[in-house]
Write a protein that binds this DNA or RNA. Structure first.
Lengths: 207, 207
DNA sequence: ATCAAATTGGAGTATCAACTCCAAAGTTTG
DNA sequence: CAAACTTTGGAGTTGATACTCCAATTTGAT
């Protein structure tokens, strides 16, 4: 990390970031294979030699895009989930996600989910990167649920690990259905239903 | 439908079917944009002129593949879901899905979900086709839940429409996580959790 | 059998997309 | 300042890909 940074000027770093940002946006909107190097050059305002100076080829750029999107998504959700202590705070988290997809007019879906569907069977390296990112995301949710459990906001016999998997699936499936229907409702309903389930677990666990 | 069929020989129909089948499989495994016409020709054992005799271009072939996958998926799930009358029969439905993804070694994910993620923002016609297919799938689930509700297997105040959306999201999200992790467990856990939720609704709704 | 229509073979084309190359300009460091 | 290194411009190359064309063969209806 430091080694790489040492041979990168401030200006060079900015150019590299511009390339990754442009590539990430285009690949989210139209898919990885449909996004050409020329598209990225135009969007980032760079020449071919600049792009190939920073990345040996398209695969390496894709890898950088996956890292970038993983970092962005995890950063956002870490901020929302580290303070989860109640059902209500889960509803705030849901509002954040619904607002984001609404502002995007349901285009692109989840930055990680889209890449995962696109690359899982085409790029083994990207698949492992994405699996690791989802694993961290899942762990953020699990941790939040475990915290709730300790506060008594969730039944003692609930399984935070499995509930985290189910919640992440609800988010991903909800985003996909919202994307294909161009309507934020499926995401809202899917996550709300999982939150209702957690709520029921809390209520019914006091025999 | 009849008009098209009338100018299609039995042999011609078989060739067309072979092309669509090969295209569907390749597009599921490697994505639409990565699947070349040449790939499809080789897999189906046809010449360029044959392919372009039956389809004006790649877009039309993609459209036929979407129809084909929608038909396949809806057929399978209709068979499973029309007989849903209890929590246990939902668990059988889950087993069917888990078995399918396991046999595929988690490659490809959902035939409709993959196409949806791939095409929703790239092909407006395909997006509407896919939205219609998901709508019918959702309706199959809703109908099953409504039947259960009438038999008293589901709380009277439960909302089958919203629960169907959430269940479909769980399936899609579970399949995506299974695909990226190369592990059927996320699908199983996501669907089981939704089934648990339905089960809880049944139990707690008798005050 | 015969004619029209459907189907097939296979060579060919035009375009696009990924990547290369080399020299010029700017930046860092001793 | 000067040498070494980083960054940039832009024309060019190679291979792949979607699609075309026309003649030959097979099939179906009369």
């Amino acid at each position: 990390m430091t080694t790489t940074a040492r041979r990168l000027t401030k200006k060079g770093q900015a150019t590299r970031d511009r390339i990754v940002g442009a590539a990430a946006q285009l690949m989210l909107e139209q898919g990885v294979a449909r996004t050409t190097i020329e598209d990225i050059q135009a969007a980032a305002g760079v020449s071919p030699s600049q792009l190939y100076h920073y990345f040996p080829g398209k695969d390496a750029l894709v890898s950088a895009v996956v890292d970038h999107q993983a970092s962005q998504v995890l950063h956002i959700h870490q901020a929302c989930l580290q303070s989860v202590d109640s059902i209500d705070s889960l509803r705030q988290w849901r509002d954040v996600m619904v607002n984001i997809i609404t502002e995007m007019h349901c285009v692109g879906g989840c930055p990680l989910g889209s890449l995962a569907s696109d690359l899982s069977d085409a790029d083994p390296l990207a698949r492992t990167q994405l699996a690791a990112a989802f694993s961290r995301w899942q762990e953020l949710i699990r941790q939040g649920l475990a915290d709730m459990q300790q506060r008594g906001e969730l039944a003692a016999d609930a399984n935070p690990g499995e509930l985290a998997v189910a919640m992440l699936a609800a988010v991903q499936g909800g985003l996909l259905l919202s994307q294909v229907n161009r309507d934020p409702a499926p995401l809202r309903i899917a996550v709300d239903t999982m939150i209702d389930h957690l709520h029921n677990l809390t209520r019914t666990a006091i025999p």
